[in-house]
Structures are given as C-alpha cells and as structure tokens.
C-alpha cells in the first residue's frame, strides 16, 4: 500500500472517530438538558401541589378568622394557580410567596387553638409537610442535574460541542431567594 493511501485511511478513520465523538457528546448534552427539563417539571408539579394544599388550608383558616388578613388576599389573587410560562427565577419568587403565605397561616393558627385540633386542618398540615419534602427533593434533583450538565458544558473538549450547539450553563434553583425588585408577577 502506498504511503498516501495509508495517510488517507488514517485521516478518514480520524474524521469518522471525531464525528462519532461529536455526535455522542452532543447526544449526551441533549440528554442532560432533557433531564434538567424533567427535573424542572418535577418542581412545577410540587409547587402546584403546594399551592393547592395551601389554598385548602387558607379556606379552613378563613372559617375561623373573620378578619381579612393580607395572607388571604394574596391567595385570592392567585386563584388560577401557578402560571405555565414562568421562568425559573419567577418560580423561585412564587415559592417565596408561598413560604410567606404559610408563615402567615402559622401565625393565624397560633391564635386559634381549636383550629389546631381540627382533624381536617391537621391532615392538611401533614400534607403540606410531605409536599415540602417533595419540593426539596425536586429542587435537589434539579440542581444535581444542572450541576452535572454545567460541569460538562465547561469541561474541555465537551465545551467545544456545547458552544457549537449553543448550549449555555443552566441556573440553579435556590432554596432561599433574595428579594429582587425587578421581578414582577401578576397572577
């Protein structure tokens, strides 16, 4: 076999190997992205469930407290539940608002011992505790997937493929979000 033929074969083999690696890496990144999206849907499901449970709690509390607490006004505004097209940052904001509602409910409950003893309410408290565990799990799963994807995106040579297909680092879902004035939400 001629030298140029050997060289040609080596070049073809190298090009094929690089092409396989490129496709494999790209698919790996896409799979990672899908996992992140799935985990984000998990957060949505948990947040919606928390919203529903909190709404039921508010209804129960309202039966006891006749005054118009700020808490309840907030929830009334959110009657439609969590909007579908929220960004991750807005979801974090939504979670913070739900935290506030729950804190307000807890304050209200302290003033009404009979409410604390009511079976429906205690069951809702159990439900909300479980829902919160689900939110934490969804958040940790999401962050874990984001962490894995981000480390791939910034690592060489995967970073070359990531930039070629326009994949950027994903944001983490923080447990506690600092209040930001520039984010407005109208439900």
């Amino acid at each position: 076999m001629e030298t140029w033929q050997i060289l040609l074969i080596i070049i073809v083999v190298l090009v094929v190997l690089i092409a396989f690696w490129y496709i494999g890496t790209m698919n790996g990144l896409r799979r990672g992205e899908v996992k992140v999206s799935e985990a984000e849907s998990g957060i949505d499901v948990a947040l919606t469930k928390r919203f529903d449970t909190l709404s039921k709690m508010v209804d129960t509390v309202k039966g006891y407290t006749k005054h118009e607490a700020k808490t309840f006004e907030n929830v009334v505004k959110w009657r439609k539940g969590m909007p579908d097209d929220l960004t991750l940052e807005q979801k974090q904001e939504f979670m913070q608002k739900l935290n506030q509602v729950q804190a307000d409910i807890n304050v209200a409950v302290e003033q009404y011992p009979d409410l604390k003893a009511e079976k429906v309410f205690t069951n809702l408290q159990h439900s909300i505790a479980d829902v919160e565990e689900h939110i934490q799990a969804a958040r940790r799963l999401y962050n874990s997937n984001v962490s894995m994807l981000n480390s791939k995106i910034v690592s060489f040579p995967t970073s070359i493929v990531a930039s070629r297909i326009g994949m950027a680092k994903k944001p983490f879902f923080e447990a506690e979000l600092e209040k930001r004035a520039d984010v407005k939400m109208d439900f």
């Binding site: 934490q136 969804a138 940790r140 799963l141 874990s144």
Partner: peptide
C-alpha cells in the same frame, strides 16, 4: 424514579 431517591434520601 430519580425523584424518589431524592425524596427519601435527604
């Protein structure tokens, strides 16, 4: 299901 792992394993 991955969520279950994170739900149980706090």
């Amino acid at each position: 299901d991955s969520h279950t792992a994170f739900y149980v394993l706090t």
